[in-house]
Design a protein around this nucleic acid. Sequence first.
DNA 1: ATGAAAGCGCTAACAC
DNA 2: GTGTTAGCGCTTTCAT
Lengths: 396, 396
Amino acid sequence: MHRSATDGTPRHPPVEEDRYGPSSPAAQYARTLRMGTMGQVTIQQVARAAGVSPSTVSNLLNGRIERMLPATKDRIDAAIAELGYRPNRAARQLRTGRTRTLGLVVPSVGNPFWGAFARELESAALARGYNLLLCNSERDPERERRYVEELWEDGVRGMVLCTSLPSLAHLAPTIERGLHLVTFDRPAQPDDPASVVSISINNPMGGYLAASHLIELGHRRLAFISGSLRSVNRTARYRGFCSALEAAGIDVDDMPSWPGMDAVPFGDVEAAEVGRRAAHELFSRADRPTAVVAINDMTALGVCRGLRDLDLRVGKDVSVVGFDDIVLADLYDPPLTTIRQPIAEMARLAVEEIIASETRSDTEAGRSVLLRPELVVRASSAPPPAGAGTDAAISA
Amino acid sequence: MHRSATDGTPRHPPVEEDRYGPSSPAAQYARTLRMGTMGQVTIQQVARAAGVSPSTVSNLLNGRIERMLPATKDRIDAAIAELGYRPNRAARQLRTGRTRTLGLVVPSVGNPFWGAFARELESAALARGYNLLLCNSERDPERERRYVEELWEDGVRGMVLCTSLPSLAHLAPTIERGLHLVTFDRPAQPDDPASVVSISINNPMGGYLAASHLIELGHRRLAFISGSLRSVNRTARYRGFCSALEAAGIDVDDMPSWPGMDAVPFGDVEAAEVGRRAAHELFSRADRPTAVVAINDMTALGVCRGLRDLDLRVGKDVSVVGFDDIVLADLYDPPLTTIRQPIAEMARLAVEEIIASETRSDTEAGRSVLLRPELVVRASSAPPPAGAGTDAAISA
DNA sequence: ATGAAAGCGCTAACAC
DNA sequence: GTGTTAGCGCTTTCAT
């Protein structure tokens, strides 16, 4: 090892060599370092084995095969195979400044929706030759910031951020440095930096679809259940929910409502617990609703569980509509009516946007893509039981 | 930029400088590169701003603050803050050969169990100052190998692999290079390389607990349902299941069985679908069981769904026991009886093992840690309906 | 068609 | 207590 200074390819002028021969402390240190790296095979060794220079090996590695004789290529290929050579990513990245890696920050892979989305995004990234790094923010802005900065330090320049925070101020420094950011499930906000692209479903439309489905079934007392009140999509979905009520001539202010849980911060795994508690409280009251729209499927499943605790039958006594269409929605008893997000398409779009913005010369106005949500009707929603919560019952 | 050759800190002997002045093509190239990296602030710039040398900044960065005057430290801190300096990880890693990052390869984060485990492992890693990189293998050995090698190339030397493949041969080259590997949910196999540590629950015990719980409730016709037959823990859990039957004097060969689906490869998300199909086929037969043990909760949930399709009531007509205790087990209707895996503790252990093996001088025999599974009884398991599947019914 | 050399940003041994 | 220096493995320009 460490023969580069004495063999045929000195990497420094002779003047250096006189001062720091192969037995100098520096050389010893280099040797130790190399031991520590566990026999990493370098491009130099491959070059030597193939009887060519490192640059030629590098050319092969980077697909510039037209620059060498077929015989040379074969020799190098053989050397690579024999030595089991794998290029060192850190060195490569340090040199080029690029990485074929995207970052994904989700609230929590403990929530099946985010797990499913992560899978889709990984597939989409892989299909474009990118790798994916996955991080959990647990909806903590500080943790979100830390991850984004850490990914940046790892050379990741394109990220998908799943957040419902109204402001991206905590990420401003990284965005200014040139981060290609796509926010998911969070429509663009007025204060967002111009370069940010956002991809989400049309949340107000989703809320509208959910509520009007229930109204069409005959429900007149509807509640909207969510945990955090400050989330961007909560507001948007609730807005759509309200429009549907208004369009049907129902006064939103008359609807039973649940205060929410903004005091107690909670993660996505606890979403179900939120739904359960909300159901307990909302359905113990006299003015209880006949139907519920939940902010997402996990919360909806919690609501169903809570209703069962009260001996109310979902899809009979009470209708429940969720959001997301996670795998478990169809598995549940009763299967859950929900608003489906087209996650595969959204994932593909997110990757395309990032790659496009990396290729684009520079700061181009970020756009906001809204996809159409889809109502999936299953057994958790049905007409209200006769005499309960209908117009007649209310006027009685 | 690129002033280092002309200012007070030349990095190469003068002879170099005569040949490649600041306007040489090399210098121009360097400038372009630096533009491309989007204004990366370097340690040199911090050093200049603070009026010290890069090494002093480096010393501060690496916690060797005792080597400098408090005033110097303050000046450097100020410079770092003002310039918004963040060390370049690639450079750091290239230099030290180390990374404070662990890798996790799971079958699929689409399965809530793996999502939950990933969360736990991330917490455990974070608590020890490590980051976590998450990858989905979709139970594809080739993809598993690719990820392991890619992580290795990224400088990751410690990984947790969740696999149920009987052989680790596809990872042998990387293991030989010094990978610190912990397999999760896959007990050590005779052919495993000696350095591999394995962490899992005692799967035979889990299978035993599940089956004997059902037997104690009075069931005498039990089926075991799983998808892939080749998985290591499938075999182990089934073995435990059989012991419980034998201990109760029940002949395993008399039990209704389902052929499994080894022909069709499937991911963890489809586990539920497997359960559903298995239930359809198994419960359409005359010799149908009164109770089922499923390989995991997702499959168990699918079984429940399939039973419902046949108008059989879970927890009444048929008992179902799952494995894992995912969040949704308790949310389901009826709540699912299951074998809990202590994932938080297992995650903590996995991280400890990896860190220990990185610190340890070298190849030490890998060990196998088996944790105790816990039976969680919920409403999906109950005594068999009178006259069905009991000894009497069988002899009738 | 191939090679020599420079340097990406950082760390740490050693000199002062 | 602080500075100087070499070099981690790679890519790419320019020279041949």
